[in-house]
């Protein structure tokens, strides 16, 4: 059971923990109730992805691999939606697929939401290929024959002769691939896709894996990256269509400031106790 002092300490820690939880909840809630006016400009790496999409001619194919599931939805759904809206606005032909079976439902939702806004049709203006097992083997297959890897799309339409896939026989015919990922799929696309078949590769990812991609940005293996909710907000800003990501950044600001204050406060307290201890001798 422990000594009374130990129990008192445990109770204090439990209370402190719950106070922090409440503070975090309040920091997230407040900007939704009272919108904050913080402005921001898109980051350079987000702009590079945007410019790559802008540079494609209308009618060009562009492949999206949405490799995430509901656990990363908050960051990657707005990003994916913004990208697809951009593509459909420019009359590109998005080819959408996923390597994650638990992400099929969300991927379908995203493409259907974006397509409905502009009255685009599956098979004619875009194609949703769905999911196939295989990972890197699937990428290698697609590099030789897209129709071989996906004989039918998600809606069971044959991909052979599909108008949305006109001129596309394999990954070599696709100028730009964008992988939106919550795991290691981006590195897989670099190693088994981009370095082999020569297309430009952009990425969108959760904030957790964004720091790991900087070596690929510097080497040019990635043309740009949209990192986390900030990346999604950057793209909405570049599209001049602020959405949930832009709104979410206000809550992000407040919560980050709270956590920074908590860390700084705790360290000031710790250092002052250490100094007091050392001066006492």
């Amino acid at each position: 059971m422990g000594t009374p002092e130990a129990q008192a300490t445990l109770r204090r820690l439990a209370v402190a923990r719950r106070v922090i939880y409440v503070l975090v909840a309040v920091a997230v809630l407040v900007p939704f109730v009272y919108p904050l006016p913080f402005r921001f400009r898109p980051s350079p790496w987000s702009e590079k992805v945007f410019k790559k999409v802008e540079a494609l001619k209308p009618g060009s194919p562009i492949l999206f691999s949405f490799d995430f599931d509901p656990s990363a939805m908050a960051e990657l759904y707005p990003m994916s939606l913004a990208l697809l809206r951009h593509c459909l606005q420019r009359d590109l032909h998005p080819i959408v697929m996923t390597h994650w079976q638990s992400g099929v439902g969300i991927t379908k939702q995203i493409i259907e939401e974006a397509a409905k806004e502009r009255g685009k049709q599956s098979g004619k203006d875009y194609v949703f290929l769905g999911f196939r097992a295989g990972g890197s083997n699937l990428v290698l297959n697609m590099g030789e024959s897209l129709q071989g890897a996906f004989a039918k799309d998600f809606f069971k339409q044959p991909t052979e002769g599909m108008p949305a896939l006109e001129g596309v026989r394999s990954l070599k015919d696709i100028p730009l691939v964008i992988d939106i990922a919550a795991g290691t799929a981006i590195e897989m696309w670099i190693a088994y896709g981009r370095d082999r078949f020569g297309f430009d590769l952009g990425a969108g990812c959760t904030a957790v894996i964004a720091p790991d991609l900087y070596p690929f940005l510097q080497s040019g293996q990635l043309v740009g990256v949209l990192g986390g909710l900030r990346g999604a907000a950057d793209y909405e800003m570049l599209m001049k269509r602020p959405g949930s990501a832009t709104k979410g950044m206000q809550a992000q600001s407040l919560t980050h400031v709270l956590i920074i204050l908590l860390i700084v406060g705790a360290n000031v307290h710790y250092l002052s106790r250490r100094l007091k201890g050392s001066t006492k001798g």
């Binding site: 820690l13 402190a16 922090i20 939880y21 503070l23 975090v24 919560t255 709270l258 908590l262 705790a266």
Partner: peptide, 12 residues
């Protein structure tokens, strides 16, 4: 929530 709490308690 856990990150905020852990950062406050352990990040020194």
């Amino acid at each position: 929530f856990f990150m905020a709490s852990a950062a406050f308690r352990a990040f020194r």
